[in-house]
Simulated scan of single mutants.
Amino acid sequence: MRWLVLFLSVFSSISLRAPVAIAAASIARTIVVDLKGGGDFKSIQQAIDSVPDNNNNWTKIHVAAGVYREKVNVTSTKSYIVLEGDGAQTTSIEWGNYSDFSGHTTDTSATFTSYASNFVAKSITFKNTYNGFANLTPAVAAWIFGDKSAFYDCSFIGFQDTLADMLGRHYYKGCYIEGVVDFIFGYGQSIYERCNISTVQSLRKPGYVTAQGRNSTSDNGGFVFKWCTISGPQATYLGRAWKQYSRVIFYQTCMSDIIVPEGWYIWNAKDEGLVTFAESGCTGPGSDLSGRVKWEKQLSDDELKKFIDISYIDEEGWLDAQPPVD
């Protein structure tokens, strides 16, 4: 269904240093994008392309309100970019590609792709406008491949495979994520904090919120959701095991009654004992554990702390070293 297992070892072997005090970086340059012509560029891609290759100075690209109908790609040579909209409700990047598993692949369907490390996005929407209800197929809104990437108050809107949280350490705070079939998927090592996760109506029942691809015991990957909400019109599992060591944890998350009682689906995994699917302190009618699969993990307090603490993705202080987002 998806690829890139070949690159998994690159990020699963990331070594983390001891915590150090790091001052937040400052913005060296600001570029303005405005559809109406009041900025430096009318196209977001043109603004990104104007950043020098191998850049190591934080550059802010401020995108004025509007619907930017373009595919946007941040290549691996365009690091240290802050992509800032005027608000997720008013600034959006929209495109309608999809995967047909021939000429169009899952990754090339993405409206927005980022392969660069040290990337920040704030107050902007990434949307795939393909009509997935009519023909369910991968149609990615955002494909995140770079390490040390953070997203604040952003929206990710799609149907199938909305957010490809592929590789690297990622932080999502205050974001809105919408879809129906494993619409948060990938190999990433990520924390989702105070995010609103919403299903959309589908002809296929039920859906899956996650499909995490951890593939070995040495892989640090996993999705951790803390203080989030899950709601919407479509019944859904919390996740299905894309790979043998899939790892997803929901902590103090409010779940509506759309959650399928079993909670989880084994899918591609061969050994249920190797999968880490867990919940702790969740609320709402969907958090009732009485019908959950028997192989759901029960984590100790120490095990849980390891994952819900920000150090799970950031022992070295890279989040504090990024420019302030307020």
Results as ranks from 00 to 15, higher is better:
Tyr251Met: 04
Asn268Asp: 14
Asp257Phe: 01
Gly232Ala: 06
Ile230Tyr: 14
Gln244Cys: 04
Val248Asp: 12
Ser246Cys: 04
Ile230Trp: 12
Thr236Val: 14
Trp264Gln: 01
Ala235Asp: 14
Tyr265Thr: 01
Phe277Asp: 02
Ala269Val: 13
Glu262Gly: 00
Lys243Val: 00
Lys243Gly: 02
Phe223Met: 14
Thr236Asp: 05
Lys226Trp: 08
Arg247Asp: 01
Ile249Asp: 09
Leu238Gln: 06
Trp227Asn: 14
Tyr265Trp: 08
Trp242Leu: 03
Lys226Cys: 11
Glu272Tyr: 01
Ala269Asp: 14
Tyr245Gly: 00
Thr229Cys: 06
Gly273Leu: 02
Glu272Phe: 00
Ile249Gln: 06
Pro261Tyr: 04
Gly222Pro: 10
Asp257Glu: 11
Thr229Asn: 14
Met255Ile: 04
Asn220Ile: 15
Ile249Pro: 04
Gly221Gln: 14
Pro233Asn: 07
Asp219Gln: 07
Thr229Ile: 07
Ile259Tyr: 07
Asp257His: 06
Arg247Ile: 00
Thr236Cys: 13
Ile249Cys: 07
Phe250Ser: 02
Phe223Arg: 04
Gly232Trp: 06
Gln244Leu: 10
Val260Lys: 05
Gly232Leu: 05
Trp267Tyr: 15
Gln244Val: 05
Ser246Gln: 03
Gly273Pro: 05
Trp267Leu: 09
Phe250Val: 06
Phe225Ser: 08
Ala278Asp: 03
Ala241Glu: 10
Arg247Asn: 10
Gln252Asn: 11
Arg240Asn: 11
Ala235Asn: 15
Lys226Thr: 12
Ser256Ile: 01
Cys228Arg: 05
Ser256Leu: 02
Gln234Glu: 15
Leu238Asp: 06
Gly273Cys: 00
Gly263Arg: 08
Ala241Ser: 14
Lys226Met: 13
Ile266Cys: 01
Val248Ala: 15
Asn268Glu: 10
Tyr265Ser: 09
Tyr251Asn: 13
Trp264Gly: 03
Arg240Phe: 05
Ser256His: 07
Val224Ala: 12
Gln234Asn: 12
Pro261His: 00
Pro233Glu: 09
Ile266Tyr: 02
Ser218Asn: 15
Tyr251Gln: 03
Ala278Pro: 05
Gln234Tyr: 03
Gly221Glu: 13
Asn220Met: 15
Ala235Trp: 05
Gln252Asp: 10
Gly263Thr: 02
Trp264Cys: 03
